[in-house]
Design a protein around this nucleic acid. Structure first.
Lengths: 252, 252
DNA sequence: TGAAAATTGATAATAATTAACAATTTCTTA
DNA sequence: TAAGAAATTGTTAATTATTATCAATTTTCA
């Protein structure tokens, strides 16, 4: 009872980096704040977290290069991304081979990923490092020049590389989506990569949090009908869901 | 006035790890607690400290108490590695293009690297992320499967990749060295990569801390006479230095 | 020099944390 | 299995830390 809750809190903190007591309270509605406080105290004594005013933060989070732009960015819409990542992680079976991008949603997924025998291709450096923590996951990084603001790689030779590479599944996310423009992102070379990934994969899962709807970015890499499964959060509008379902796309 | 005080506080925190507001007040009797609070706030915004109830703690302190395997390893002989990295960083000029490996010494160098216009090729994920923090450094990661225990990549196709890649300088380090076996490391595929890097580079700098002397690892990637400059620490034995100098290798 | 900006200090208002104890649950072991 | 001990939990009150506010002071720079 207690033990499990404490482990859950530790997990949560490792994934989210930092939480307020109120947020914790939302996650554990059936225990009092005082209990959560006591749990945090215990975790602090174990050296696993740091209690700060208002809540606590994960030691691991602090150990990651502090102040990096990436860590900051990953905070936006963290709740939705976490839930999307959780859904996505349930769709991954042992023995499969998949592609993931290097975005912040992918990073959430990397943290949520079960430690099972899978092979992951990714162009995200942080994603690769996160996945390397797992014993059973093998990881391949696509080489290329590092894009500093999202710590992912992009390379014109990726195409050649993909020639001899096989994966059933691609799980990617977009920076923007509208029904007529489709899924788009800010960098052409990244769009290129994602396009290749989707063509190569048998099945394409798109992770899209609702804040991306209606936005347009310069480079489209997939149209609505290109995807097989849409993974999103609860705020995703119903009429939009219907649009996907009409094209036989699974929405979850 | 303010600037200095803030620096002093940061220093103090780095030395003491953690301080209460009262302790800080003792150190700075001529400013009010409120001022110290504001200083701490500012330091927190810079990501240099973490404010906790009652006071603050140094981020560096937290980073020390690490559990990750990579972070652990990088602690061994940290002093020597830091000094070696500092020496190496002075040898890097603006405008140059260089290769670095993904080892812990390279990681130190990445941290010490001046923020100047250089291009770095590396197979180290952590190295790449660290270098990405610098505005003027552009980074290319070599793709490949991730070796989990040192977070670097290795790939049989690296060879093809190197075909069209040019750099003047390779700065690498070895896991082991003896005069007759040469420089060696534990993984064949890594040895292969390093061999290619040294053949490709006009100049080869080897960073070798003295603890590596006399050790032998399975795969040799360079002989004594292959290198141009040896960068080492003060404990490096003199007779060994002489050996290098006889071959016209600069020892520093 | 003199006005604007930044820094600082004192106090009040707010919020978070701890302390204390009773109520509940879980664990022993007779 | 039932009584008692130990651990866990919740509620409230007390304490403490933090933030907000505004006036006073210092610094900056035109």
């Amino acid at each position: 009872m207690k033990r499990e809750r404490i482990e859950e809190i530790a997990d949560l903190l490792n994934k989210r980096g930092r939480l307020t007591l109120e947020q914790l309270d939302d996650f554990f509605p059936n225990v009092s704040q005082m209990t959560l406080r006591r749990d945090l105290l215990q975790l602090e004594q174990q050296g696993r977290i740091i209690r700060v005013r208002g809540g606590a933060m994960s030691v691991k989070e602090v150990q990651k290069v502090s102040g990096e732009p990436y860590a900051k960015k990953s905070a936006s819409n963290a709740d939705a991304k976490l839930r999307i990542a959780q859904k996505a992680s349930n769709l991954i079976d042992a023995g499969c081979s998949l592609f993931m991008d290097g975005g912040t949603t992918a990073m959430c997924l990397a943290k949520e990923m079960p430690d099972i025998d899978v092979h992951v291709f990714t162009n995200g450096l942080a994603v690769a490092i996160e996945l390397s923590q797992k014993k059973n996951v093998s990881v391949t990084v696509l080489g290329g020049q590092v894009i500093k603001d999202n710590l992912s790689t992009a390379s014109p030779v990726a195409k050649d590389y993909f020639e001899n590479t096989n994966f059933e599944l691609a799980i990617i996310s977009a920076s923007a989506f509208t029904p007529d423009i489709g899924f788009s992102c800010g960098s052409m070379i990244e769009a290129d990569l994602l396009k290749m990934a989707r063509q190569k994969a048998k099945t394409l899962y798109m992770m899209l949090d609702s804040s991306k709807i209606g936005k347009i970015m310069p480079h489209t890499f997939a149209r609505l009908e290109d995807i097989d499964v849409l993974i999103t959060d609860d705020d995703f509008p119903n009429d939009m869901k219907e649009l996907f379902r009409q094209k036989n796309i699974v929405v979850m």
